[in-house]
Design a protein around this nucleic acid. Structure first.
Lengths: 179, 179
DNA sequence: CGCGCGATTGAGTAATTTCAAATCTAGTGG
DNA sequence: CCACTAGATTTGAAATTACTCAATCGCGCG
């Protein structure tokens, strides 16, 4: 946060007091489809996936969340609809938990806090635009290369079948791409 | 804006004074790839597309912008990189123009203004998440039905070939879908 | 009347999926 | 340390889907 909005130690401490630390084991599921969602998470350590399964049990991954990323079912969080996504830990994970109520409280109290979240959402928005364009323009092969170029470490941490579920191809197709 | 953050007349007038009205004819292009982008636009009347062309002249549409929508090349606007997208008017169009400098000024001055933009970006973010999931999970046919259900009027205003460029299929394939 | 744009149709081709089987690998218990 | 197993990856072959390229159709407008 400090990189983006320059907080005093006091402000930082006050903000930090609204976060709770929670630890999860690999395979833990922190959000099930249908859940009421009231919090979002900052990833201190570990790796998560946000995904859904279709009727045939095929999985589609909306997002991986590595260290310093934020994760939640944002539609459920903001619209108060039940969660669509499942969020699962792919490794042992340490999260900071922020409730939507505290987020709104801090946004109202601290202008810089709201600015920070606004910047974070904007950058997420822009990244999703890029993902949409990649899905429209690029074939599986170049989407793979693009993802690898951007997050090389991801490929050492998750099975290829999950990469495929993120890129929108089957694991067999991914396996056949000449990398 | 009033629906989301409740402004006084005075606040509204002050905010409005930072917008300029501009009119464009059908086929006008308000942003070319490579342009420096310093403004975003609110659509009062008309319809625009945000798109790119690949090396073979095939077009891909990131976004349609109808009345009450906002449009810009947001990556270019926020990162100060040259524009990737072209933004063109599909009808005679009336826009309100807001510069990024004025947006930042108003955000700093008026908390409610920043909150409004934050909400707007969040809802754009969530809509893009839905679009990504639709591209991953659904075939062209159900993406078509979904788009039609959400924006039926769009189909009376733009040629089907542009709908195809938005959905990520060729116009021939779209034409063959049993609607 | 004919032009031009958009939409449709047809045929062949390329890419991806499905289903099945084989192979590889890491972690576990003996 | 080794054998075993479950999960992950690769490979094969057939079927499906969407694409490309080309031709045709339909219609509004000058």
């Amino acid at each position: 946060m400090n990189e983006m909005v320059e907080l005093t130690d006091e402000e930082f401490g006050y903000i930090a007091s609204h976060f709770k630390v929670r630890k999860f084991r690999k395979h833990a599921i922190i959000c099930h489809p249908g859940d009421l969602v009231t919090t979002e998470y900052f990833v201190v350590k570990g790796l998560l996936k946000t995904s859904v399964m279709d009727d045939h049990g095929k999985e589609y991954i909306l997002q991986f969340a590595m260290e310093n990323w934020w994760v939640s079912d944002y539609n459920a969080l903001h619209s108060h609809e039940p969660a669509e996504f499942s969020i699962a830990c792919l490794e042992d994970t340490v999260l900071l938990v922020l409730s939507i109520a505290d987020r709104q409280k801090l946004s109202a109290e601290l202008h810089k806090f709201e600015t920070f979240f606004s910047l974070k959402t904007t950058s997420g928005f822009i990244n999703l635009q890029k993902r949409v364009m990649a899905l429209l323009k690029n074939d599986a092969h170049s989407r793979y290369k693009q993802l690898f170029a951007q997050y090389p470490t991801l490929f050492q941490r998750v099975p290829k079948s999950l990469i495929a579920a993120y890129l929108g191809v089957t694991r067999e197709t991914l396996s056949r791409l000449s990398l």
